[in-house]
Design a protein around this nucleic acid. Sequence first.
DNA 1: CCCTTATCTTTACATCGTAAAGATAAAATG
DNA 2: CATTTTATCTTTACGATGTAAAGATAAGGG
Lengths: 240, 240
Amino acid sequence: MAKTETRTETARRVRRSSSATGRPRPAPRAASAKTETPYHHGALREALLEAAERVLERDGLAGLTLRAVAREAGVSHAAPTHHFGDLTGLVSELAAIGFRQFNEAMGSACKAAATSHERALARPKAYVGYAQAHPGMYGLMFRTERLDYSRPSLHEAAEASFAGLANAIGAMRQEQISGDALTLDQGAAIARAWSMVHGFTTLLLDGRLEDILGRLPKGTTAESLLEAMLKSTVVGKLPA
Amino acid sequence: MAKTETRTETARRVRRSSSATGRPRPAPRAASAKTETPYHHGALREALLEAAERVLERDGLAGLTLRAVAREAGVSHAAPTHHFGDLTGLVSELAAIGFRQFNEAMGSACKAAATSHERALARPKAYVGYAQAHPGMYGLMFRTERLDYSRPSLHEAAEASFAGLANAIGAMRQEQISGDALTLDQGAAIARAWSMVHGFTTLLLDGRLEDILGRLPKGTTAESLLEAMLKSTVVGKLPA
DNA sequence: CCCTTATCTTTACATCGTAAAGATAAAATG
DNA sequence: CATTTTATCTTTACGATGTAAAGATAAGGG
């Protein structure tokens, strides 16, 4: 709060045409040559989500407010309500987009890996890489108290993310991970992999690893620390 | 927001004596028999911190506001400002208390462990145990964007926590962890231990592990999953 | 062409953080 | 002891937020 916002709330009634999103909007009939947007936006839902991502990565989670998003999109502060219900709704849809981006990044990283040894490292690297490239999004995706997982879009996207992880672990252990039942050993392997990579990522984004990184041989990056950390980690089946 | 608060903001001027904190307050001269608190509280700073912890664990992070804490302590909404500057100040001091509680829990758990094998499990168990017992506090301690680590109390308490971890790893590896320099192998061991336990804890508190726990052999608890996860994890020096 | 519906804007209100000024009591000073 | 200073707490005030409700505007279907 106390952001010393200059212009008053409703004083920004100069509407832009379609410059914000880049693509021309549907041109709601006779597109008047004037630079005034129509009363009806045409694709406000998508525009708001794009605006929200911009606001998030620019101003952080604290700056991600309904009104800020509306401002960014150039509409009235109450417009988002109609499309998302409330702030939790908007934020949850944005997190769903994040999970989809995330899943895609992991998928393409795995496909690009040739050997199975490469693949074992490619996935966690892509995980951390996404978080570093989109820290706001990653932070949002795991900020549970602000999300509504009962929303199908978010639920599905997050579920897919977990399934990808479980499958990858299964592949490394050379066994099928069945949907409904897990052995303790399997569960432990999944929990270990996920905990380690997720923990590393959050600690890294929170700056909690700076201390360690600073004391390591110079030139050591977060990525090489991650590699070293994973290298001596058991994934396969334990010898009986 | 929209919490349908009944009584208006300043309508709660009925002050209680010293029932809130439990201990009697200094009785600022001639303690009138009436149940009215003096204008000067006497130990408001501590009372506010205790109130804050209560609010946090009761209403969650979203409910932890300056005004709610003031209400809980029975003082005017602006009273906390004088003691903590702003919300970040209050929250940071509370997080410092959390780290001290946390460190103490880990310390006593280690002392109680007899064998070195027991000690290796006692620490992470105490880690997760504290988080489960004080989910609000743990969440706060790692909610970086709301904390000010430049505050000495918070900085020191968090630092002590990290030092304890590093020492424990050093002990397990049977080598001294020097203050200023680390080998990649040492750093990886510390990062692995911390990432794993911190990641496990946050995933657990966020309910992200429910899915896994539900599919494990019935009777499997979070604690046994943690044990299984740690059991096959390399901590010692790698064979050269 | 009119009426319905979806979309967006205005207005309104309770809450929040925080700044500033007033009130009160404790402490210091003479 | 009387008076002044200082620390502590309260009041008042302001801009920000989320959200509910009512009004305005356009699109579409009879």
